[in-house]
Design a protein around this nucleic acid. Structure first.
Lengths: 184, 184
DNA sequence: TGTCTCATGTAATCCGTTACATGATTGG
DNA sequence: CCAATCATGTAACGGATTACATGAGACA
């Protein structure tokens, strides 16, 4: 999947769950896919326009919604659903990794033990917060209605986040202990 | 840390361990930082030039090495070491996440249970391979000499990779089981 | 002799974010 | 009535990858 198509997949995917405005797509991606995906306005609107051009989505002007020109609701078409399946079937394009925390720790000798400890504490707090947020989402998702067909898949990605967060916490604790030993 | 500076930090960091050519920096980043960082040629050479301009690194022409113009060895200067510490001290710039696997699974309903199972199996194999690679690196690092001051920090990042890989394996197994239940 | 690896750089291009422009509606 | 939120788009910028150009030494 060429990089560009991934945005297309994310936008079409959002529309596959329910019709919505461009603004709502951005919010959905930020709030629901946030822990593993991101898109900006600058990508979403042009992508929507192209999807409509290609017949993968349809635009319905909402009678005098808000906004300058009124809002438009976008829906996925049958062709769009097929296209989405195609996009999702393409081989996964691994994004080149860039983990700022690990970069800092790798060169931690230049930074000093104390600064590294701060970074680890910070990372632990972050992971812990994420874990809490996931628990809230899990609770919410359990009671949400009308998403029975999607829920099992959504739980898979939620579980991935939880596993990753727990691993990060365990790693941070272990690493903090290792730093303590180093100081002495 | 503005995005640009991260490349500077990675390159300077490499030079902080040992003087080397631009080509060697790329190899080091790919082989050693590979599991959490990446840089391309197009970034490394201009960055090196700027580092020399700014007095953070010095260029020593190697007497008729290989390559068109002969090779140059770059070394970090005292000012460069201070600059590196500064760069590493800047707040971590979180890279926006883009996990193609989770995107596919989230919209897994469109893709079908079988395709999702394939993706998970593939992910498990990948994580397992990484774990093996980490074990090899760990063994190698234990015997490597002259890196005593850096080793503890390097082990931290290695451990992060191991934790993440083990979490990915556990998650994949759990998810595969969940998919089996779904089918029935 | 020919291919592989080492080596340095530049140019084209792509992808994605940020900032800007614009304005209506809702709620306090 | 004023601020926040909803809403749609475009343009400029910047960062990163890829492809290209170029060539010497090693080794088979």
């Amino acid at each position: 999947m060429a990089r560009k198509r991934q945005t297309e997949a994310a936008v079409l995917g959002a529309l596959s769950v329910a019709p919505m405005t461009g603004y709502a797509i951005r919010e959905a991606i930020r709030d629901v896919l946030g822990h593993f995906w991101s898109e900006s306005f600058g990508q979403i609107y042009p992508t929507l326009a192209r999807l409509v051009d290609d017949g993968h989505a349809s635009k319905t002007a909402t009678a005098a919604g808000r906004g300058r020109t009124g809002s438009s609701t976008f829906s996925i078409t049958a062709a769009g659903r097929a296209h989405l399946k195609e996009l999702l079937s393409e081989p996964i394009q691994a994004s080149r990794p860039r983990d700022g925390l690990l970069l800092r720790l790798f060169f931690g000798r230049q930074l000093g033990v104390d600064a590294c400890r701060d970074l680890l504490v910070q990372a632990r707090v972050g992971a812990s917060d994420r874990l809490e947020a996931f628990a809230a989402i899990r609770a919410e998702m359990a009671t949400e209605e009308g998403i029975d067909d999607d829920r099992p898949y959504w739980l898979l990605t939620l579980s991935a986040g939880e596993h990753a967060a727990r691993a990060a916490i365990a790693w941070a604790d272990e690493s903090l202990a290792a730093l303590e030993v180093m100081k002495s």
